[in-house]
Design a protein around this nucleic acid. Structure first.
Lengths: 234, 234
DNA sequence: ATTATTTTTTATGTATACATATTGTATGGA
DNA sequence: TCCATACAATATGTATACATAAAAAATAAT
């Protein structure tokens, strides 16, 4: 039981990075994290080295660990690469999934839809992450799984706004995502590769549109006339 | 200078894993490695955790680090996935390479061809690894780069026999690989994506044929008659 | 006032000692 | 002989102390 402190620490750090609780590029203070998680620096540093290998953080010589950044250059590559990885993973998942994995995925989806409908954006986002990670496991392909996991790190961080509905259309979008997940499960279970790919790409389109709005939001209103009116009114 | 002991250790371990000097699946004794590299267990364990994240080793709770295995199930996936990753990387490399990276690649290729012609199989293999890793860096795609690196771990281990010529045709094969590398550099430099992809796939075919021979070698001769003769002769 | 240099502080890197878990061996019983 | 249990040996996991490098602060010099 006390062994799990280390894994707990690693999992917590991952979650905090994925949910932008710790900002991209920010420093990780070893002693602060140690006191927080109740472990000494030795195991904590081992966790950080592991997370570095997994792409969550970057280690710099003599200046500690920093959360993986999300610069604009990588973003471009992200949008370019995601369809390839996601669709390939979807196809392989449909081909290789076991029935036990389908059950596990359904459990995750159930928790996900509950959190998403309750507008619990943090939980929704992490469960969405787990959902796609589990599809990745179904693909049984360690090479592409490595790509997928790195994509999901950035995807989950970029889609933080996705599950935070601020309008009726936002809620509609979330409901659509839930439905797409259900359809994906069915397609994978039925081993219908091409359907799974189609659904995956539709799911990606939905997510991408929302992310693009986040990255490039509507410009602030420049309503010169009304501003003038307002000034005159004062 | 003394700082580098840790990196030296990490690099050495990677090389020994890639060259099958440490067998897939075998245990890594921490104290043995510590005395060998002249570091204490703390930094060594940090290295092992990093290598675990990079896919070189697998860590098991309370039973240390083991070199990543190469079971038959993964092999199938390896042959299935390699063309996709390699060709995609080649295309992106042709699109995104800098002239400085071309120069670096030429240096590697020069060292590689020298070692390969000298039948220095260990060095050839590692320089071949670096050659393809550098093409991966040119692609400027961290997501696919993660896949590529994991592919290269297994590819380098599987192609150990490639650079160990035991016949004239073997030497011919090595010469062909060297020529293909040169052609790939030219194609990438000229930003000719489709040519780079073609050459990459040809290079893959050459390598694959050799690997398949290694994985599934010619069966041992069952020469019943001669064995009978021999027994009669005694 | 500003810059350069020294001192102080803080944080990271490493070694060692101790705690805990696993593995191997030996002893006792059936 | 076989199996189970207990004990010893070995290896892994963690905490702490010390060493070293970066960052910050203070002092000196122009």
């Amino acid at each position: 039981m006390p062994k799990n402190k280390k894994f707990e620490c690693a999992d917590s750090l991952k979650e905090r990075i994925l949910s932008l609780d710790i900002a991209p590029g920010s420093d990780l203070d070893e002693v602060a994290l140690c006191t927080e998680y109740g472990v000494s620096r030795t195991p904590l540093r081992e966790v950080l080295h592991r997370l570095a290998g997994d792409g969550y953080v970057r280690l710099e010589e003599n200046r500690g660990a920093k959360v993986a950044s999300m610069d604009i250059g990588v973003m471009r590559v992200f949008f370019q690469t995601a369809p390839l990885i996601y669709s390939t993973i979807a196809r392989l998942a449909a081909e290789n999934r076991t029935s036990w994995q389908i059950d596990t995925l359904r459990v995750t989806q159930s928790e996900f839809s509950k959190a998403a409908r309750a507008a619990d954006s943090q939980t929704s986002s992490l469960l969405n992450h787990r959902f796609h990670e589990q599809i990745g496991e179904m693909a049984q392909n360690p090479y592409l799984f490595a790509s997928l996991n790195r994509m999901l790190i950035d995807h989950t961080r970029l889609s933080q706004t996705f599950f935070r509905p601020s309008s009726a259309s936002d809620q509609q979008r979330i409901d659509k995502a839930i439905e797409q997940h259900e359809a994906m499960i069915s397609a994978i279970e039925a081993r219908e590769s091409s359907l799974a790919i189609d659904l995956t790409l539709q799911h990606w389109d939905l997510s991408r549109d929302q992310m693009e709005k986040y990255v490039r939001p509507d410009p602030l209103p420049i309503d010169v006339i009304s501003m003038k009116d307002r000034r005159d009114a004062i």
